[in-house]
């Protein structure tokens, strides 16, 4: 059950610490010396265009990808050095909602949400069901317990995945695109929920999103990724008032094709 910080209590003030992270897929460099620090209880929003490496950064934070260089620490523990046991303890304190939900397709919505409880606690079946339903209530999915993921709409999958991420009352939450594909009302509700989670439970939250409105509403700080590099990390005001042209382009959704060499472009097309 939710415990206060017991695991690897080394003296770092950060919940998430990324130092000079470099990442490749095959020989393509996806992340280039990315550094990022998130304090406990903070909501950090990672923004950036499609393909800028946001999901890849998230995979590194989750310990799913191994860094080519650099370091990722959660609660002061370097996750590529952590023992299986430490990693297990860390992961029990994390909740993750993937970009596509990643619900277990062979289980009902309720079984999906109850799954972490079944795996990690010795609660009895009744309690597990009640807790799962409470979380489904929180994300407005009450009444859909018995449906299979294939029977849900895109937005409902997102919300079910969120309920599953929340069910262990994590102290660290990761959302990949929580509001993409949701209608504005539900999306605003979700933002509200994220803020409440932080305020009530001091959960540290890292959100990856495209949606500017949502980002500005929930973020304590924003970091902007561009082609695998961090352009700026700062408060909402700092990012809004950034003099950087690229940041402004991203904020104003202007196309980023400015510095493409036309000859190179032509060669690519005709190659």
């Amino acid at each position: 059950m939710p415990q206060a910080a017991t695991v690897t209590a080394s003296a770092t003030p950060y919940a998430i610490e990324v130092e000079d992270l470099v990442s490749y897929y095959d020989s393509r460099r996806i992340l280039d010396e990315v550094s990022l620090r998130v304090r406990p209880g903070e909501i950090m929003v990672v923004m950036g265009g499609s393909g800028s490496g946001k999901s890849t950064l998230l995979r590194h934070l989750l310990g799913l990808n191994r860094p080519a260089a650099g370091r990722v620490s959660l609660f002061g523990a370097d996750i590529s050095q952590a023992s299986a046991r430490e990693l297990y303890q860390l992961r029990r304190r994390m909740g993750v909602s993937f970009q596509n939900g990643a619900l277990f397709n062979s289980m009902t919505v309720e079984e999906n949400v109850a799954f972490p409880l079944r795996e990690h606690t010795r609660l009895d079946e009744r309690t597990i069901r009640i807790m799962a339903r409470m979380k489904l209530e929180v994300v407005n999915l009450a009444g859909f317990e018995r449906l299979m993921p294939a029977q849900l709409s895109g937005g409902m999958i997102k919300r079910a995945a969120l309920a599953r991420a929340l069910v262990m009352d994590p102290s660290l939450l990761f959302f990949d695109e929580p509001s993409a594909g949701l209608d504005p009302v539900v999306s605003a509700d979700l933002d509200e929920l994220i803020l409440r989670l932080r305020d009530a439970l001091r959960v540290t939250i890292l959100v990856v999103t495209h949606e500017l409105d949502s980002a500005f509403r929930i973020a304590d700080r924003i970091t902007v990724l561009d082609q695998g590099r961090i352009l700026i990390t700062g408060t909402v005001e700092e990012v809004r008032n950034s003099p950087s042209e690229r940041v402004q382009n991203l904020l104003n959704r202007r196309s980023e094709e400015i510095d493409v060499d036309p000859e190179e472009y032509l060669r690519r097309l005709t190659d």
Binding site: G63, L64, L87, Y88, A102, L103, F104, S106, H120
Partner: peptide, 18 residues
């Protein structure tokens, strides 16, 4: 079965749940 779980990131989801 395992392949489709791998594709839909269910395997990753398992892993990050510990």
């Amino acid at each position: 079965r395992i392949g489709s779980m791998q594709m839909s990131q269910e395997v990753d989801a398992l892993r990050v749940m510990g």
